[in-house]
Design a protein around this nucleic acid. Structure first.
Lengths: 343, 343
DNA sequence: TTGTAGGCGTTATCAA
DNA sequence: TTGATAACGCCTACAA
């Protein structure tokens, strides 16, 4: 039923190879036959079959994205958008593989499918949580298509791209310090997340550098949810009633913080300055609008595909070894009314 | 380099067909050879090649999702999550195709790619805006793999799945009526969106049914953004200072509405009851928490894949004609403090 | 400039 | 129960 090269060839009274040449814009063809073939193609509505092409050319022009947590907005979602944009640019299609749980999942099964489908490369966009990177320690990486890992600790032999979480957190904390705040609390994400630890370390470093002590009492662990932000601020204030600022590790928790502050009659930013992380679209409309750290996850996605493309090209041309890279993209502080009265 | 059926066959001293039988769990094979082949498979680490399999079986076990606006959270994102879940269930992989613009895009190019890649079915998850469905009016649909359209006007010959936007808006409005509100404003989405019109119609119908007149002055058109929600409420109040409730067509605009209300000193919900649409994760933490309409977009995604699967199976078994369906999933009102003091 | 033959890795047919 | 052999649709050598 579907039209094949053969059909076109028959209609145009040429060989399949000739049609192939026309389709692939290869030179060495007379303008006349070219026209004739083109006409036949259009008449029949011929569409080349990618599967057959991939089979013989040993390239599927497909990249896989393994991700989790799209529904939590922050990172993964914007990353996927960036990945798609760059993939389009370079002529790849995207095989999306969302997983239900970020840690205890069957990597073997997922990777098996991707390998079976002959993807040219894989973007691993699952956050590093606990030891869910252990699997890759083994040398199996060699047997897989090229992979790029997003948002994880840099490791030898693996290419990693991420936003500079630590720098971002330091920026946020420094901003609060510059405003004259001295009792700066921290609400972290779950500390088995690499990103949460990095943000904590940024806060920690900034305080140290300012000659202040990052006391444990100033720190509370949240779980990224608004509710945990509420609990977090409650706890912090009960420990340190004189708290004058808080860096919250994502915007959703910051939303909870703002709620509690209002409920308790602490004015933001006069009594309590608040800075979040992520810059989700709503954050500019919180009460008050939230100062936050913007991480360009879209660009992380783009960079991932670019890297992957380089590696794929290199491998195909026989140049086997491409050195793994680690790229940390700078973050940007978006200053709004939750930290400065007149931003 | 990669291990093929042949390699396994050679090692196990059987024919390729026999190996194929083992791999595909076909019966009619002696336990002895079966064991031998299995051993060879494991020894070599054989992985079947999906491309080759698809080529000959004329099934790629791949579904395409064409979507736009993942970054706006509301519908598309959760839909994709649902699609993925059901696709996993049924053994399909997902080819994701995000487009940059929802209306003026080159459908031909997108569909061409998908056809070339031999996808078994397509979920069209781009919102209906203006006349961006025109393309499909032509009979070309017949030449394409089975398609399901999400969130659009029901049309003959096309399968459509959506949340019941009109019902949801009516629920929201009825809720406000039940609370005794009588001057109920509306902030719509862009009216060239089908979903925006449906929500407007729901509001309209509920007011009519209550014997109230849905005056044009009660209606303002927004663009889904928080900023447009702010402008919307400003405008409504300038026209009708006695407004006592407003139904806002999405949560993001509702966020803007809440901000303006607070700025103007209108107490929510005492002076002004507010209901949104979408139930984004943050909405429970707005000030005050937002009453809103929850549309189960995840289930819409699941249903889409289920339908697609049915059609694909039918086609493959020769039963060509499967009647197009239209499915509208019920919405659910989530009552919070923006409409009721003690929810 | 064009055509022929063979192969990519798998499944299906039909005979042994 | 098994095995040759021919597809599937395309591309690449190599000839013509």
């Amino acid at each position: 039923m579907p039209v094949t090269l053969q059909d076109v060839a028959k209609l145009a009274r040429v060989s399949t190879k000739t049609v192939s040449r026309v389709v692939n814009n290869q030179s060495e063809i007379s303008e006349e036959t070219r026209q004739r073939v083109q006409a036949a193609i259009e008449q029949l509505g011929y569409q080349p079959n990618f599967l057959a092409r991939s089979l013989v050319s040993r390239r599927s022009n497909t990249l896989a994205v393994v991700a989790w947590g799209l529904e939590y907005y922050g990172g993964p979602l914007r990353t996927v958008v960036g990945i798609q944009r760059q993939a389009d640019e370079l002529g790849y299609s995207l095989l999306l593989q969302l997983v239900q749980h970020p840690s205890d999942m069957d990597f073997n099964a997922v990777l098996g499918t991707l390998v079976a489908r002959q993807v040219d490369g894989i973007v691993w966009a699952i956050p590093e949580i606990g030891d869910n990177r252990m699997w890759f320690q083994s040398k199996r990486l060699m047997q897989l298509p090229p992979m790029i890992f997003l948002s994880m600790q840099s490791r030898p032999g693996m290419s990693v791209i991420a936003a500079n979480n630590r720098l971002g957190a330091a920026q946020a904390t420094q901003h609060l310090l510059d405003l004259g705040r001295r009792k700066i609390g921290l609400i972290t994400g779950p500390l088995d997340w690499w990103e949460a630890r990095e943000r904590r370390d940024g806060w920690y470093g900034a305080l140290m550098q300012a000659g202040l002590e990052p006391l444990p009492a100033l720190m509370v662990e949240g779980d990224w949810s608004p509710a945990s932000g509420e609990r977090g601020l409650d706890l912090l204030l009960s420990r340190r009633p004189d708290l004058d600022a808080v860096f919250v590790s994502n915007d959703q928790m910051a939303l909870g913080v703002l709620r509690v502050a209002q409920k308790l009659g602490r004015r933001v930013p006069q009594d309590l300055a608040v800075v979040g992380f992520d810059n989700i679209p709503e954050s500019g409309f919180f009460c008050p609008p939230l100062t936050t750290v913007y991480q360009r996850m879209t660009e992380v996605g783009c960079a991932a595909v670019e890297q992957l493309h380089k590696i794929i090209q290199a491998r195909q041309q026989g140049r086997e070894a491409t050195d793994p890279v680690t790229i940390l993209l700078a973050t940007e502080l978006v200053i709004r009314a939750s930290s400065v009265e007149e931003p």
